[in-house]
Simulated scan of single mutants.
Amino acid sequence: MAESAAIRVEGLGILFRRNRRGRRSLKDLFAGTSRRSRPGEFWALRDVSFDVRPGESIGVVGRNGQGKSTLLKLVAGVLLPDEGSVAVNGGVAPLIEITGGFVGDLTVRENVRLTAGLHGMSRAEVNRRFDDIIDFAELAESVDTPYKHLSNGMKVRLAFSVVSQLEEPILLVDEVLAVGDKAFREKCYKRIDELLAEGRTLFFVSHNEKDLRRFCTRGLYLDKGRLALDAPIGDVLDRYNADYNAG
């Protein structure tokens, strides 16, 4: 990958089934052949190509079901493409399905250590950042409470706090700012501002136009699984709104 690209997506396509993820056969995987859709299958994304430079803030927009979250999961490595490729230059801090990976019977303290470790933090790093994680999440009084007894809002605060402490250069965000109360959302905004000021790369999926304009300089508009427009975020939102209003 060229040194200037933090993320490079080339000819990307992924095939889904109506009831579950369509998977390639072993022959396809080893031979590198692409798949044609069969009855009951559809291309969630196809022929998508773009580069993201280090330090860029990219907003991904489109109606529900157009492939936005799927694209984010492909960049994160959660899903594998059926066509094309995704190359990521550096580690990622994924704010995707944010409460996933936590264990209900473990305490908040145990979950912080487990989850941070799974994201690549060393034990020394976890110890050094532990108080900051708990303070940001506002869970000092619940640190020895089993995770399953937390409210949904407390779970989201904890998850955001852990992932936002990662030092990875690329931040992947999927609608996480739509959750939590107003005060906590403002804390999230400030934290993302801090990360961007450090030169992090942001890849942000959202329906919130205000958030997209605040954080992003460039936009990708997905329509029917294809990249309809790659342009400054204002132009992308204008095009998306025009299409939406036109029905």
Rank of each mutant, 00 (worst) to 15 (best):
M1W: 14
S4K: 15
A5I: 03
A6K: 00
E10S: 02
G11T: 10
G13Y: 08
G13V: 05
I14E: 09
L15R: 05
R18S: 12
R18E: 15
N19D: 12
R21I: 14
R23P: 01
R24A: 14
R24N: 05
L26D: 15
G32R: 05
G32C: 07
T33Y: 06
R35I: 13
S37R: 11
S37F: 01
E41K: 04
F42Y: 12
W43A: 08
W43T: 06
R46Y: 09
F50V: 00
P54F: 00
P54W: 01
P54N: 02
S57D: 09
I58K: 11
G59W: 06
V61Y: 02
R63C: 06
G65Q: 07
G67K: 15
G67C: 08
K68T: 10
S69I: 15
T70G: 13
L72D: 05
L74Q: 01
V75L: 07
V75A: 08
V75H: 05
A76S: 13
G91A: 15
V92P: 09
V92Q: 15
A93T: 09
P94E: 11
P94M: 06
P94H: 08
E97N: 11
G104V: 05
E110I: 00
V112Q: 02
R113A: 09
G117P: 08
G120K: 14
M121L: 10
A124M: 15
A124R: 11
D132K: 13
D132S: 14
D132A: 12
I133T: 03
I134S: 01
D135Y: 14
D135T: 15
F136V: 07
E138C: 10
E141A: 13
Y147W: 04
K148D: 00
K148N: 06
S151K: 06
N152P: 02
N152S: 13
G153V: 00
G153M: 04
R157H: 03
L158N: 00
A159E: 00
F160A: 13
S161M: 07
V163K: 01
V163D: 04
S164I: 10
L166I: 07
E168A: 14
P169Q: 12
I170R: 01
I170N: 07
L172Y: 05
V173R: 05
V173S: 11
D174N: 08
L177E: 12
A178W: 05
A178Y: 02
A178R: 03
V179Q: 10
D181T: 06
D181F: 07
K182S: 14
A183G: 04
F184P: 00
Y189C: 12
Y189T: 08
K190L: 15
K190E: 07
R191T: 15
I192S: 12
D193V: 08
L196E: 03
E198T: 09
T201E: 01
F204T: 03
F204V: 14
F204M: 01
V205C: 12
H207M: 12
K210L: 14
K210A: 13
K210Q: 15
D211L: 13
F215P: 00
T217H: 08
G219A: 06
Y221E: 02
K224V: 04
L227C: 02
A228K: 08
L229Q: 06
D230T: 03
D230P: 04
I233N: 05
L237E: 00
D238L: 11
Y240K: 11
N241R: 13
N241I: 12
N241T: 10
Y244Q: 08
N245C: 07
A246H: 09
G247S: 12
G247K: 05
G247M: 06
